[in-house]
Design a protein around this nucleic acid. Sequence first.
DNA 1: ATGTATGCAAACCATTTGCAATGAC
DNA 2: GTCATTGCAAATGGTTTGCATACAT
Lengths: 162, 162
Amino acid sequence: MDNIKLQEQVKNEFTDYLTLYKHRKTPERYAILEHIYTIKGHFDMDLLFNSMTDSGFRVSRATLYNTIELLLDCGLVVKHQFGANVSKYEKAYGNENHDHFICLGCGEVKEYKNSNLFTPAQQKRFQRFKVSYYSLYIYGMCSKCQRQKNNIKSNNLPIKKK
Amino acid sequence: MDNIKLQEQVKNEFTDYLTLYKHRKTPERYAILEHIYTIKGHFDMDLLFNSMTDSGFRVSRATLYNTIELLLDCGLVVKHQFGANVSKYEKAYGNENHDHFICLGCGEVKEYKNSNLFTPAQQKRFQRFKVSYYSLYIYGMCSKCQRQKNNIKSNNLPIKKK
DNA sequence: ATGTATGCAAACCATTTGCAATGAC
DNA sequence: GTCATTGCAAATGGTTTGCATACAT
């Protein structure tokens, strides 16, 4: 419930993972994990990097990439590639799985809590696989962009960078 | 049914789109569309470029990127970004929507015809948006990689490039 | 003591961009 | 004749890599 408890659980899970695979428990790794779990919603490497340096913790981008890799592997972070060129990440523990609606006009990403998408009936189809997580990306036009498209009668090309 | 008919329909749809938005009907654009619709399954820019030059049609990569943009906009092609750094594409006309299972170990992508995922009940939740298409990505471990992981007791880091 | 992890800077490479030449309209 | 489109080559920028140094074990 409270944030402190979550941080603790997450840290424990990470420790277990690092121990199991004989990876070292460096202060950088824990600091990165902790920072990620203070970020609400999606983030990219730039945001994470700035968030860390701003709060006084110096890390190299290389280490961020290395550590994120570990966090992805142990399932504490999820990676998204919505359509622009930057990878987006998101904490995964205590964060319900949800769908993403991506507007092809403006690139905005909205989240929807997904209720009953993955029914037991659906699950059965993947029984030979160990499903870690899934992402549902729904592409289309948000109401704002639809209106614009109707007015100016010119096409909106797909999401551009930045 | 037969391929010739499909090609024709697709070409017509593209023509309509180009006309509507006052884009020019260049031979390059039609050649690219035609080539894409001979490719089975996913492709990336490299594959498309080689496929075209091999069959004697010279296009620049810049034009490929430009044209794909149009094809995405009019819905004749769908773009995927599975986790590696290259974008994958897929023809979208006469190609049923399907789910993708991506193995976090080896990066292999398998497709599953999706049956009843998008029920009318689900649809209602997005009524304010014009849904063009959606992609369900299911990440996990394929049976082969699971076995490997158990045997060698070392972790498989997420999908690497190439 | 050993070898993994970090930080820096350089390398990589898919994609984008600028611009002159081409050709659809 | 206009101006969108093409092709080329250079630029961009997120991510990766190589290597010397630091530090977890």
